[in-house]
Design a protein around this nucleic acid. Sequence first.
RNA 1: GCCCGAGUGGGGUAGCUUGGACAUCCUAGAAGCCUGCGGAGCUUCAGACCUGGGUUCGAAUCCCAGCUCGGGCGCCA
Length: 563
Amino acid sequence: MTHDPLIQFRSAAERVMAQALGKLGVESGQIAFDDPPEGMGDLAFPCFALSKSLRRGPAQIAQELAAAGKTPEIASVKAAGPYVNFTFDDKLLTKATLEAVLRNGAAYGSHPRSGKRVLLEHTSANPTDRLHVGRGRNPIIGDTLARALRMSGCDVDTQYYLDDMGRQAAMRLMAERHGKTYQWAAGLVEAERQDPEAVERRAELDAIVKGAERGDTALIAELQAICKKVMEENISPVLRLISAEPDTYVSESKFVVDGSVGRAVDGLRASGKCGEDDGALFIDLAPFGVSGRTSRFFLTRGDGTSLYPARDVAYHVWKNGQCDRAINILGEDHKTESRGVEVALRALGQENVPDVLFYSFVSLPEGKMSARKGRVVYLDDLVEEAIDLAKEEVAKRRPELGEERRADIAKAVGVAAVRYNIVRTQPEKQMVFKWEEALNFEGNSAPFIQYAHARACSILAKAGNIPSNYNPSLLAHEMELRLVRRLAAFPSLIAKCARDMTPHLLASYAFLLASDFNQFYRDCPVLVAEGDARGARLALVQASRLALRSALNVLAIEPLEEM
RNA sequence: GCCCGAGUGGGGUAGCUUGGACAUCCUAGAAGCCUGCGGAGCUUCAGACCUGGGUUCGAAUCCCAGCUCGGGCGCCA
């Protein structure tokens, strides 16, 4: 059974259209409908393309097509200039939509399980420092997309690829061994100092890195332990705070230890697609559109030890063994690396390559974020700030609530404001972080949507029982019909977001739904409505509440019942 | 230098894949609404497709060039 109320209406329009086209002697393959402007119906069929073969003006063709027959689902078919516009029957649409929402409850928008396995990798920041807002875009985009995929019917595993093999992990370990900070290690290693200590430490670091890459299990265990500690201290807490913790942490070292990095390297060497420079294995990416000072994608060093790309390839081979679709959320600095992995996977005969969603970095008004220059906003600080601000607002608005309840509300509002503010923008757009925008609680913001939900809850609480029988044809006000159409659009939106990897559309949908609900609320009194209108409106409020709840869930925003 | 993205009202942003009907919405600004279900609300006004070519009956959308901003161009990750 489908959960999308619009399907029967769209296919009815397609049938009508196919018949009309048949009468004009036109082969109807795929019928592509457009969205007409507000107030001009539900589906539009543009006639420009037919103009040439029929040797008539598109407006005239539209006239002829509009004379087509009707079905119960289609209330009107009208020519409007070069378009044929279809309008769905309000009563049937309202009935089908409310039934679909009320039957599915807060799971409305979900599709039946398809059994398709999706492995979505997100965040994967090196275990060194806290996440700053720039990188913080990653878990929020990734987690939202994962939720949309689950709703679209996929089985999803979200993974954090934990780099415990690189120089940064090694520096952490070295610092730990000497009882010093990471900054101490970074300072010694990165500076060009020639003093004996720096030279010695660089040698030690080199020994750690290469030892691990050769598969020294005791050393790897040490690295894993330190990385785990760093994750627990710096990164996992904020991921939990924003409800974006991945299902699984996957250690890079795993692929060295189990030999799959070695197999990947051997396979690539055998593929004949690689070059060698002084013993170092590489793939030339020049034929694949990568260009610059060098286009070499190095897999190993001259001494045979593996480099990050080789381990990344091994990880992706493993991924392909356990999913039907792999999705990576990556910063735009990984574009070339990602291209290299894709080329390598193909060279190994892998048919699946990951779908990659790149996001641009968030900068500050003063410029690029840089921890070293002290010019950085950390994600956990931002969330704390948002919670504090929300606390003040709640104290002002709801002084009668107990302190604990107010704190819970403030947390839900603060986290939501941050998540929403980040996910609402298309990932590939650059963002300049501004406190006043991130902490905006009005207009296009999470609290606005949460408020609409709380308002719906409040109406329902006052109403008492919601009658199970209601007459959908009583919902005829312009705002009621607009709200019904918005509700109806949700399941297909979920499918689109999951397919096209467009989580930002979920944010704008939730906002539009809340807006439509507010306008309905203004124009259509519910509790004081006369006779049967009250019951019908209550059903619409209930459906709105459930759909808002579902839309907020996919954004990982807590649907507060009061605030 | 070469390669990859992005440029939409004062600020931000949707639409771009698949070219079409008055370019979406938020914010800041101006003016209003409220003895009604929670004002984190609602209404009205004003304001934008980087520039120049091209393709087309038609371009924010496709193509080319330029400019601006991000990113990449390590035997780092």
